[in-house]
């Protein structure tokens, strides 16, 4: 049983990514280039449709002159590295207490009913993958789902479905709170500090 998937296709950084990788490596003292393994794995994952193949892992190992096993250790330790292909939209559904109290179960049901996927699965068309994760640190806007790099907040079954519909159609779905509020401000606008300062 191996956790690593071989694609048979060679992996290589694009010239821009090589440049970026060199910047990451330059942040560490000479001879300590292996410290850059995490940003480089991230870079490789972004270039490789959001997952790391055997070739990508070994490329990073070679790039940093680090044994492959050391790279694999890091890649298997952190859940943010995907070791198998994921959909175009990678949904990370928070299920920690605040999100759960605010209805993350409903969002999970939407995925199950609408997309037909549970945690760790990918839709047949390769558009969506779902992963249940622990606290994403946006409890004030619970429940929250991270789609690729963006947070979609204050979700409920309806607006989450709307987001998914837009994405499925290839449209852009506005990120952030999906209800009437700015960032983490109160719903419907500010409630305090309404007067202008300096009057008194």
């Amino acid at each position: 049983m191996s956790q690593v998937i071989e694609t048979g296709k060679a992996f290589e950084f694009t010239p821009e990514n090589v440049k970026k990788a060199k910047v990451f490596i330059a942040k560490y003292p000479k001879g300590r280039q292996q410290s850059a393994v995490m940003p480089l794995l991230d870079l490789a994952q972004r270039q490789n449709e959001n997952w790391l193949s055997k070739e990508a892992l070994e490329y990073v190992g070679k790039f940093l002159d680090v044994p492959y096993m050391r790279v694999l250790e890091v890649a298997t330790f952190y859940t943010m590295y995907n070791l198998k292909p994921v959909g175009k939209y990678f949904l990370q559904l928070c299920r920690t207490t605040p999100c759960w109290l605010r209805g993350s179960d409903d969002l999970e049901a939407v995925c199950k009913n609408k997309l037909g996927i549970s945690s760790g699965e990918t839709t047949e068309d390769g558009m969506f993958s779902l992963l249940e994760v622990e606290c994403l640190g946006a409890c004030v806007n619970a429940p929250v789902v991270q789609i690729n790099d963006d947070f979609y907040e204050d979700l409920n079954a309806e607006n989450f479905e709307a987001v998914l519909d837009k994405l499925a159609k290839g449209e852009e779905a506005p990120k952030g709170p999906q209800i009437d509020r700015i960032n983490s401000a109160p719903e419907g606008g500010p409630k305090t500090l309404l007067e202008k300062t300096g009057d008194a």
Binding site: S2, Q3, V4, K54, P67, Y68, M69, R70, L72, E73, T76, F77
Partner: peptide
């Protein structure tokens, strides 16, 4: 350096590369 610990926490395993 073929031997290492993969995964973490309760799922940690000692394994050789591939």
């Amino acid at each position: 350096e073929d031997l290492g610990a993969i995964n973490r926490g309760e799922n940690m395993e000692i394994a050789t590369y591939l």
